[in-house]
């Protein structure tokens, strides 16, 4: 393992705090979790006319439902503004967006595995890198953005680098990055999601996003995956 990635501290911090709010007596004002009483009533018979608690809803019910793109655009815009106020440069901003995406990605993977297990007869967990990459390109993209990504490429120069290409990333559709920060790609959030899914499948990698516009697709974005050495070594053994 190389030097500890900053997001590990984020994760360990959040796991600590989640241990905190497992105990109903812990009073935490920082989290807007429903109070212990509402959890208790939801476990019993729900009161008529009262909508069930979001935690008690069936996860499969929302599989095909969609989120308003406008609402998400406003939310993501606020996320970027909030983050931008607290960083000291573009690299820092991208790293923070990546961390946020990572935290979303761990949940995306968990949900997708859960749904695959309950819906398909032969649920499958990818253990090799290429099938995992394919499933990220199609399944993860479809779950998160509603359509598969546009292409997968393998780097010619470095054998540990792979790329997922999205010609028009939905999270950047309304974002115009000013000229003085043109290296910034807000798809760092997506890169974080990909990194979390790969990590969760046991394929650690460093994932970054790069804006690679073409004449036809001005917001074309490349998600660059740089695999950990251990993954390549294992792939070699599994061959």
């Amino acid at each position: 393992m190389q030097q500890p990635h900053p997001r590990f501290s984020v994760l360990s911090g959040s796991s600590l705090s989640s241990a905190e709010h497992l105990s109903p007596t812990a009073s935490s004002t920082r989290f807007s979790l429903p109070s212990a009483t509402s959890i208790n009533t939801a476990l019993g018979t729900p009161k008529p006319g009262l909508r069930p608690n979001i935690y008690d809803r069936n996860l499969n019910k929302t599989r095909t439902s969609e989120v308003s793109a406008s609402a998400f655009a406003f939310l993501f815009s606020e996320v970027v503004q909030y983050t931008q106020k607290r960083v000291s440069g573009i690299n820092d901003l991208e790293r923070r967006l990546n961390t946020l995406g990572y935290r979303a990605g761990t949940r995306v993977l968990e949900l997708m595995v859960w749904r695959a297990e309950s819906s398909s007869k032969a649920p499958k967990r990818e253990i090799r890198f290429l099938p995992a990459l394919m499933s990220i390109h199609t399944q993860v993209w479809r779950a998160v953005f509603g359509r598969p990504a546009d292409a997968i490429e393998k780097s010619v120069e470095n054998e540990d680098e792979y790329m997922i290409i999205d010609n028009d990333p939905p999270i950047e559709r309304h974002i115009s990055v000013p000229k003085d920060m043109n290296q910034l790609s807000c798809s760092s959030f997506t890169a974080g999601v990909v990194e979390a899914v790969l990590d969760g499948l046991g394929l650690p990698a460093r994932v970054t996003a790069h804006h690679t516009p073409t004449q036809q697709f001005p917001s074309r974005t490349t998600i660059l995956i740089k695999l950990d050495k251990s993954v390549l070594e294992r792939e070699e053994i599994l061959k």
């Binding site: 406003f74 970027v80 931008q84 974002i175 115009s176 990055v177 000013p178």
Partner: peptide, 17 residues
Amino acid sequence: MKNPFHTPEMPIRSEGF
């Protein structure tokens, strides 16, 4: 309005617009 790099009430410098 959905562009995080726009400040409300300030001149619009958005390529997308």
